[in-house]
Amino acid sequence: MSLANNFYNLIFKRNSVYVPVVFASAFAFGIGFDLGTTAFWDSWNKGKQWKDIRHNYVQQEE
């Protein structure tokens, strides 16, 4: 119960806290989800995408 109480007091009590928390967590989730699915996609398609074979064709990189 104290956890729920802490949660309430910390986040839900004031709208001025609640709304920024919603926005910030949506932003963080968006980035995290994209990073996670991209990591999975890249490992699933390892060696097939352009970024995996680019180093064969572009040598000098200053």
């Binding site: 996609w41 699933w44 398609n45 097939k48 995408q49 074979i53």
Partner: peptide
């Protein structure tokens, strides 16, 4: 090699 629902093209 790009047949599956999660498979990208083989760019090589």
């Amino acid at each position: 090699s790009h047949k599956g629902v999660l498979d990208s093209f083989d760019h090589a």
